[in-house]
């Protein structure tokens, strides 16, 4: 118990026996079946799994975007489970950053305004030194006045990354951040995410189905049928691919 408490304080996000059940009766489908996982501070964790494995659902539940049917979710020392809308909004505002596959920038705002949006919504001023660091890291200084429509996909995603980073959230959730990018832009974004973890101690949880992307993470958690089935520390693209292949064979999963 003591150890759990100790490790708890280390975790940026934590899921305790999380169940997520859709529908009722005959049509009941369990997307998550008792998932327990911890995502340590200052680490880059990838969640992988075949489609339908529940990896996105897990992330949504962790981020407080979706409610859980059973179990609890914590971000830092905040218990997400049971929070009302205003509590969730405050959580998202203060402790969570998002990066989406679809970039999701506001077309009416410039890159800079998009980056600063979460801070201005919360009515906070960014730390200028940190802001400069983020801008230089994503390499967008000469693009700050541009609208999203004037930026390439990679640039847009880097803006989205900067937006997530600049508020220094407890944890950043990235949902297939390279899904819409070519491999070169994807690599740029992933490098950038890894650097923000290594150099600045940011915590990132990323959902992906791309083994190459997962290889950038410090740790990969594998889901299948709503349960955690495997885990890799310091993965490479090859080890990830191997594990995935095993997961695709039902016998192996059962074993």
């Amino acid at each position: 118990m003591t150890a759990t408490v100790g490790r708890h304080s280390q975790a940026a996000a934590r899921a305790n026996d999380v169940w997520k059940v859709y529908g009722t009766g005959e049509a009941q489908v369990a997307a998550l079946r008792g998932v327990s996982a911890e995502f340590e501070r200052g680490r880059f964790t990838a969640i992988m799994g075949p489609s339908g494995s529940g990896k996105s659902t897990l992330m949504h539940c962790l981020a407080g975007l979706d409610s859980v049917s059973k179990g609890t979710v914590q971000i830092g020392d905040t218990t997400v489970t049971g929070l009302g809308d205003s509590g969730l909004t405050k959580l998202r505002r203060d402790k969570v950053g998002f990066i989406f596959q679809q970039f999701n920038l506001l077309p009416t705002l410039t890159a800079q305004e998009n980056i600063l949006l979460p801070m201005s919504i919360a009515g906070r001023k960014p730390d200028p030194a940190w802001y400069d660091t983020v801008i230089d890291t994503v390499g967008l200084r000469d693009r700050l006045g541009h609208r999203p429509s004037q930026l390439s996909g990679g640039q847009q995603q880097r803006v989205a990354c900067a937006r997530a980073l600049v508020a220094r959230p407890e944890v950043i959730f990235a949902d297939e951040p390279t899904g819409n990018l070519d491999s070169r832009s994807g690599a740029e974004v992933l490098n950038f995410l890894r650097n923000s973890v290594r150099e600045h101690g940011q915590t990132i949880v990323m959902v992906t189905h791309d083994p190459t992307a997962a290889a950038y993470a410090d740790r990969v958690v594998f889901l299948a049928d709503g349960q955690i089935v495997s885990e890799l520390i310091e993965p490479t693209a090859d080890t990830v691919l191997d594990t995935m292949k095993k997961l695709d064979t039902p016998v192996e999963v059962a074993g």
Partner: peptide, 16 residues
Amino acid sequence: TRELGLLRAIGLRRAQ
């Protein structure tokens, strides 16, 4: 819808 969802995701309150 998507944009509004994003704004809410990054912390825009209902009243806002």
